[in-house]
Simulated scan of single mutants.
Amino acid sequence: MNSHKEKISLLSEMIAFAVIDGELHDREYDFLLLISEELEIDKEIFLELFNKRNEHIIIKDEFNRIIHFYRLALLMHCDGVLHKREKIAIHEMGITMGLNPFAMNRILKLMEESPSQVLAPEKIICAFQEQHN
């Protein structure tokens, strides 16, 4: 992730995704705050993102799109409840990002089967690389 504007766009999209089920759970908020710190976004700016929609910037590099998809998937699981709207939205977002639907489904299935919903980076990359062959 290169620019500050791209990081804001990514975080804004994640916030919109977090409230797609109609509420923001404490665990989702904590996860978003953690991501904002990782992206080096000031807390004041982070809080402002809950009140406004930012311009969406398309992530150019596939590796960063995969990372973003995985973060969204983690966010989807962090409240312990999988809503139908979240499942539909994450697929739509992945398609919009140009990610392979079979790889996305594989990642989501592996996460559902995992007790912690966390996957090793190698598994994530492998799922997407399998679809290139």
Rank of each mutant, 00 (worst) to 15 (best):
L33W: 01
L33E: 04
L47V: 01
I45L: 03
D42M: 00
R65M: 10
K43S: 05
S36M: 11
D26Q: 15
E55A: 12
D26S: 14
E37L: 04
N64L: 06
I20L: 08
L32D: 07
E55M: 12
I41D: 07
E28F: 15
H25D: 15
G22C: 05
E28D: 15
K60V: 13
I41Y: 05
E62H: 08
H56F: 10
G22W: 06
E55S: 13
E37Y: 07
I41P: 04
I66A: 03
L33C: 00
I45Q: 04
L24E: 13
N54F: 06
I35C: 09
H56T: 13
E28R: 14
K60P: 13
I66G: 02
E48S: 00
L39D: 14
L39C: 15
L24Y: 11
N54A: 05
K52L: 07
K52P: 01
I41C: 07
D26K: 12
G22L: 05
E55L: 12
D61L: 10
I58L: 13
L47C: 02
E62P: 08
E48K: 00
D21L: 01
I59T: 14
H56E: 11
R53A: 12
F31K: 08
R53N: 12
N54G: 07
I57E: 09
N64T: 08
L39G: 14
N64Q: 09
E28A: 14
F50K: 02
E38D: 11
I66E: 03
D21C: 03
E23G: 03
I41W: 04
I20W: 03
E38A: 07
N64V: 04
I20A: 09
K52W: 02
D21F: 00
E48G: 00
D26M: 13
L33F: 01
E62I: 07
E62Q: 09
L39Q: 15
E23R: 08
I67T: 11
E48W: 00
K60H: 15
I45H: 03
D26N: 14
L32F: 07
F46Y: 02
K43D: 07
R65W: 08
E44Q: 10
F46R: 02
L32W: 06
S36H: 10
N64S: 10
H25A: 15
I67N: 11
L24A: 12
F63A: 06
I20F: 06
K43Q: 05
D61W: 09
N54Y: 08
L49Y: 01
I20E: 08
K60M: 13
E40I: 05
D21T: 02
E38L: 06
R27F: 13
D30A: 03
I58Q: 13
D42E: 02
D42C: 00
I58T: 13
K52N: 05
K43G: 02
K43R: 06
E44N: 10
E48P: 00
L24V: 10
R53H: 09
D61S: 12
N54K: 08
N64I: 03
D30V: 00
